[in-house]
Design a protein around this nucleic acid. Structure first.
Lengths: 192, 192
DNA sequence: ACATAAACGGATCAATGTTCCGTTTATGTC
DNA sequence: GACATAAACGGAACATTGATCCGTTTATGT
C-alpha cells in the first residue's frame, strides 16, 4: 500500500521535534513536559500530537532514531578502521548509548504499549550490526570466534546496571575486560 | 531529641493510607492517582499530603514497609523451620517480592530524590536477614558456606529481569537452580 | 492564479499533583 | 465532665500537563 506523500514542512517539523525531544530528554529528563519540547522545536502542541498520538509515542520515536544512528555507526566504523579497532570503537559507542538510556529505561519498563516493540527493534538493529563487526574481527584473527552478538549486547547492558556513582567507571572497566576477553585466544589466520 | 507524640487518629490514618496505597499500586499500577488512594483509605487529600509531602514520598514509604515485612519474615521462618528449609522458603518469598516490584522499579530509577535512599534501605534490611539464614543453613550442613548474601540478592534481582511473558517461570526455575547450587558441596557437620 | 487538502498552532478541556484554610476532633488539665 | 488548645482533617481551589479541537495558514498540484 503506497504511502501518501508527506509535505516538506511536515517532514521538517518532525525532524525538529525529534531533535528537540532528544535535547530536552538529555537536559530535563525523559519526563519533561511536551510543552517544553514544542517550545524548543518551535512548533505548536497540535503539531506534535498530530504526528505522535501520545507522549509515549514520541519517546519511543526518539529511542528508535538513536538506535538507528548507533547501529549505522557500526557500518561507518567498519569502513574506516581495521576490523578489531572497529569492533572496539563500536562497543564503546554502544556502552555510551546504553548509559544515556538510564532514564529512558525506566519509561521503557513502565508497561506502556508504545514501548513493547522496542526491545525487538533494539535487537533487530544491533544484533546484525555487531555480528558483522565480530565476524570481520574474527576473520582477521583479532578476536575469538563463536561469541554471540546478542550475548555481548546483553552483557554490556547488564554491566551498565550500576547503583553507585562510580557506575560509569566501573562499566567502562568491565567492558574493557570483556573486550580483552574477546581478544584472548583469537586465532591468527597464519596459525590455522 | 524526643519525638512529639502523634495522635491516635493520625497513626490510624497513616496505616490506612499505606495499606490502601499498596492495594491500589497492585491493582492500578504504581502511577495510580493519589485521589484513588485517598478514596480507598477513606481520607482527604490533605491528610495524605500532610504526612507525605509529595506523591513519591508515599511510594517510597510503601516500599520501605514491604521491605520491613519481607525482611521480618526471615526471622519468623527461621523460628518455625529447619535452617535449610527456612532459607529456601525465604528465597522464594524474596523472589515473589522482587516480582511485585517491577512497576515500582521503574519509579525507583526515575531519579526522584525520594527514592535515592531506598537501595541502601533495601540492602541494610535484606542483607542481615539473608546472612543469618545462610549462616544457619551452612552450620547445619545444608548449604555450602562462603556465599555472600549480597551476591545472592543481586543474582535473584538480575534473574528477575525478564523481557518475555515466560519471565516468572524462567525466574522461578533459575532461582531453584541457584538454590540447588547452594546445596551442592554442602559440608555435613559429621564430614568435617 | 487558483483550488484544495494537508498541516499548523494555541485555546480549551480533563485529569492529577499539590496547597490552603475553615472546621473537627483528640488530648491534657482542672 | 467541662473547657482550652493544638493537632489533624478534608475538600475546594490552584497550577501543571497530557490530549483534543477547530479556525487559520500554507504547500502542492493543475
Amino acid at each position: 500500500m503506497s504511502e501518501k506523500r508527506v509535505r516538506a514542512d511536515a517532514r521538517r517539523n518532525e525532524d525538529a521535534v525529534l531533535e528537540a525531544a532528544k535535547a530536552v530528554f538529555a537536559s530535563s529528563g525523559v519526563d519533561a513536559p511536551v510543552r517544553e519540547i514544542a517550545a524548543k522545536a518551535g512548533v505548536g502542541l497540535g503539531t506534535i500530537y498530530r504526528r505522535f498520538p501520545e507522549r509515549s509515542d514520541l519517546v519511543a520515536a526518539v529511542f528508535r532514531r538513536e538506535v538507528d544512528t548507533c547501529a549505522a555507526e557500526a557500518t561507518a566504523l567498519a569502513e574506516s578502521h581495521p576490523p578489531g579497532e572497529a569492533l572496539v570503537l563500536w562497543l564503546k559507542r554502544y556502552t555510551a548509548f546504553i548509559a544515556t538510556k538510564r532514564g529512558l529505561a525506566a519509561a521503557l519498563h513502565s508497561g506502556d504499549p508504545a514501548f513493547e516493540k522496542l526491545p525487538g527493534y533494539f535487537r533487530s538493529n544491533f544484533e546484525p550490526a555487531l555480528t558483522a563487526l565480530l565476524d570481520a574481527a574474527a576473520a582477521a584473527g583479532e578476536v575469538r570466534a563463536g561469541v554471540a552478538a546478542y550475548d555481548l549486547l546483553r552483557a554490556v547492558g547488564n554491566l551498565s546496571i550500576a547503583s553507585d556513582e562510580d557506575g560509569p567507571a566501573y562499566t567502562a572497566g568491565m567492558v574493557d575486560l570483556l573486550i580483552d576477553g574477546l581478544r584472548f585466544r583469537a586465532v591468527r589466520p597464519a596459525e590455522k
